[in-house]
Design a protein around this nucleic acid. Structure first.
Lengths: 220, 220
DNA sequence: TCAAAAGTGTTAGGTGTACACCCATGT
DNA sequence: ACATGGGTGTACACCTAACACTTTTGA
């Protein structure tokens, strides 16, 4: 038996203290003018990961993006025209790098827009389920993956990092406890640089040492 | 674009103190006479989960089995005849219930056999990758899923439970620490029954209270 | 001088880990 | 009586969670 085969991407970013997801307004039936996850058919001789990278590049202008397979969704009734199997991925991008690079339109979508996760519109197909799963996955992985640092610029403040944690975990964290924990991680580098352009005391900047991170997690 | 679409199952059980996987010897090309994960094509109007349940029933004679989607594998080169997308599932069964129910043969497989995870033969396709992923997943979920109890009979000793943990985590655990932790779980019920037919002091039997378990994990 | 966010320690309770011996049972 | 696994406690290190004030800076 054969099935149509697409990939869909939950593209996360962090901006204005909020976790956001990039959605596309469809320009095709079914669900014309509905918001949906960016995604498209996989080409015959194309690897899934390459299809995801291709679509991410079309959407954001970025290459070498962090991506992770979520699950396959293949409900017989998820598409009115019959089964279309989709493999969902989540991707994490830095908002600074993406801004003004978002591809505006194409024949099959009218516009792309970032939505805070708390303010998502109604979505086409089962895309809401896919997003819910991705949020779960992100939560579980926040402490033992590079996810927070994929969402942040290379130099960031501890407050920004805390906001990323808070927006992913969807709860407030205690500042002192957070900083104590962060200090014990061993893979953050305290820089001798400070925030600029703020009208209050400038915060120290930190960077993420991916090599040290991987060393720690390769022992288990 | 369309693709062939199958499901494959990593079926785990626990027996003789070891974690085991059910494998099928193929009777078809490619990989004829190789060991492979049980799996087959999904029918046109069949939900994936139903296909998994169907195949599990054919293989083990059991219904209502614990199953969990692992991931989609869709490499262009994974099958010599072109892309066949497979969605891998893991399933957990109790060996006692399965014994003597295993379907012996069919036109596409010669035999089914349980292999300890430490003694797996060379496998067809990318099935070794699928198993490796399932082992990882099982490890991660052992403390916060019902997995250990799916593998055990309804009444079990703490030593059996510890062996399940050890075989999943692939390391020895300290008996006293393990029992202390288990005592704090809150969803195990100490029965007033004891092991029978052993030539040494009989161990107390315990059972798993699924309702209490779910209550605990629904608060997060 | 004010507004805004940066930065900083201590305590108490709970959890993880290391470690060795006696007990009950069937043969 | 012996072989086999069942069952038990303590001490230390570490992590978690609760909690409030002073400092720095730019406007």
């Amino acid at each position: 038996m054969q099935t149509h085969f697409t990939i869909d991407c939950v593209i996360f970013s962090f901006d204005e203290g909020q976790l956001k997801i990039l959605l596309a307004e469809r320009n095709e039936y079914p669900y014309k003018e509905w918001w949906a996850l960016p995604g498209y058919f996989v080409n015959k001789y194309e690897e899934m990961e390459d299809a995801v990278a291709r679509i991410l590049f079309e959407m954001t202008g970025l290459k070498d993006i962090y991506m992770d397979q979520l699950a396959a969704f293949a409900g017989v009734k998820r598409h009115p025209e019959g089964r279309i199997l989709t493999v969902a991925y989540m991707a994490l991008v830095q908002m600074e790098e993406v801004k003004n690079k978002i591809a505006p339109t194409s024949d099959y979508m009218r516009q792309l827009k970032w939505f805070p996760v708390a303010e998502l519109p109604e979505l086409a197909f089962d895309h809401r389920d896919i997003i819910n799963l991705s949020l779960e996955r992100l939560k579980k992985s926040v402490t033992y993956s590079t996810a927070p640092y994929e969402l942040l610029p290379t130099k960031f403040t501890l407050t920004q990092l805390q906001q990323v944690y808070e927006s992913i975990l969807n709860k407030k964290l205690d500042k002192r406890n957070f900083r104590k924990k962060i200090n014990n991680l061993g893979y953050l580098k305290e820089l001798n640089e400070y925030q600029k352009g703020v009208s209050y005391r400038a915060a120290k900047l930190y960077s993420f040492d991916k090599r040290k991170f991987q060393k720690q997690f390769s022992q288990d």
